[in-house]
Structures are given as structure tokens and as C-alpha cells.
Amino acid sequence: MEEKIKKEFEFTSSPHFHSKYSTGTVMWIVNLSLIPAVISGVIFFGLYQLVIIFTSIFFAILTEAIIQKILKQKITITDGSAFLTGLLLALTLPPNFSLSATAIGAVFAIAIGKQIFGGLGFNIFNPALAGRAFLQAAFPVEITTWTAPNYSVQSVSSATPLAAFKYDKVLTELKPLVVGNIGGCIGETSALAILVGGIFLIAIGIVNYRIPLAMIIGLFLFGGVFHLIDVTKFPPPSFHLFAGGFMLGAFYMATDYVTSPYTPKGMWIFGLGISLFIVIIRLFGGVPEGVMYSILLMNSFVPLINRYTIPKPFGMKE
């Protein structure tokens, strides 16, 4: 009897929502939908990237298990969320990144980005991006050393399209940006591969369309305004859309259930806010790419956004 009650009234962390899928199923479907991005990374940067991805996932799961064991919690590594964090982190790393640094990033993502706040459902920041931000600050040189795509000789450095524009005003053509044979992070260069996975997730109802759509609209709005002000100084919005980590950020990072708003209005504000920060950082910031910082910044606004966008029940007074 007691067992049954325990099972029926078991306390679980958010995301709570009515869905035909359980948290575990959702996470594993998201993981599967990233396969095209992984394949694109392998095609453009070589098989070694699989080792980085494996390292990241392995240390993410290991950290989660160890911490839950120490804190005597239920070990939930099979729900795929630690796997997803590790996978997403690896996809945002530069090709041929050092394995020890990858492991440090994965440990940080799970331990500090997630478990310190109380585990899945309580974290304020997207764990994978928290790990990425730590690596960016810890290893500024390694994380901006890019390998040229298409099996070229290792350690030939190649500027990313964003850096090329920021420092030399060289605008990369649209076709390689979409396909992905450019310098950049393992899983971020191919907008096409991410779009395949992202649209699939939206189609089967796992990812809400509002945040990615709001981000794209915001990018065209804010990026477009600056492009119209000075065509030579600011790149067109289509460049913003396909360059850097925008696609991965829009479909996978910003839509994380735990760290994004749950009200429809809040989602629009969240997405537009991220795009505003992205445009500001990319155009006027000291670093070429701003997707990571923008999403982390807006993550911290989520409780506030949720609070002010909860729809009022019918008939309730102000």
C-alpha cells in the first residue's frame, strides 16, 4: 500500500506538463534529433569530433551519478538530460578541442550549472551553456582556435565567419553558411542539419515554435535596422541568422524547458530579448559571437518574465 502511494504521489521536478511523452522520452527524442548536427560535424571536421562528443557525454553522466550518489538522491542518469547537456556542450566546442578541457566543461556544466541549484528543474541557467561559458573564460585561447573544415591539415587555423566580419569586414557567402563547410564549432556550422532536427521537434510537439520564431523575427528586426542604417558597417540579417551558434541556440538552447518561460507571452519576450542581446553583442561587443551570453542573460530574467506574464483568470480583478 505504502509503495503504491509513494509511486502515485511521487514528487518530481519540473518540467510538469500534459503530454503524451514522459521527461525521459522527451530528452531522448531531443538527443536523437541532434544526430544530423553530429553527422555534419564529423563530415566537416573529421571522426575525431566523435571522441570529444563521447568524452563530454561520459563526464556529464558520471558527474550527475556521483553527485546524486553523494547527496543520496535517486540516480536519474537514464532520463537523458545529462546526456543532452553533454551532447549540447560538445557541439558548441571548437573542433579538435582538448579532451581534458572538454571533461572540465562537462563536470562544471552538471555540478555547478545544474546540481548545485538542486538538479533538473531547479537550475536557473542552461547547464550546457554554463559549462561553455566557464570554458570560454578558463581557456580563452584554446576555445577560439578554429580548424578549417573539410579534412584540411590539422591545426590550420581558420577564422569563423563572425570573426572574419568583425575584424576584417569580410562577409561570408550564404551557401557555405547554410551547408556548414566553414570554420566554427563542431555542431554549429551547418544551419541545415540543425534545422532538420529542430523542425522535426516542433512538428511532433516537443519544442514550442514560439521561442525560435521570436528569436528569428527579433534577429531580422534588430539586425535589419542596423543593416539599413549602414549597409557597409553592419551585416545583413540573413548573415546573422546562419552564422555562428544562432541556429543551435534558437532550437536547442533557448527552448530548454527548465530555463525558459512557460507562458506564451513570456516566450515571445524571451526570444525577442535574446535576439536583441545577440545583435548588440555581435555588432558592438568585444567578442564576435554573442548567442551564448545572450541566452544566459535572458535565462536570468525567466522568473521575472513568468511572474508578469501569467494570464489572469477570467473575472479576476486587478
Binding site: S98, S100, A101, I104, I112, A137, A138, F139, P140, E142
Partner: peptide
């Protein structure tokens, strides 16, 4: 051992 630059930045102090 590759030094963790973040530790001598303000962020490292807080962490």
C-alpha cells in the same frame, strides 16, 4: 596542466 584563466578573473573569485 593548462591554467584556468577564469580563476584569476572576477568570475573565478565568485565561483
Amino acid at each position: 596542466f593548462t591554467p584556468w584563466m577564469v580563476m584569476i578573473l572576477p568570475a573565478g573569485a565568485f565561483i
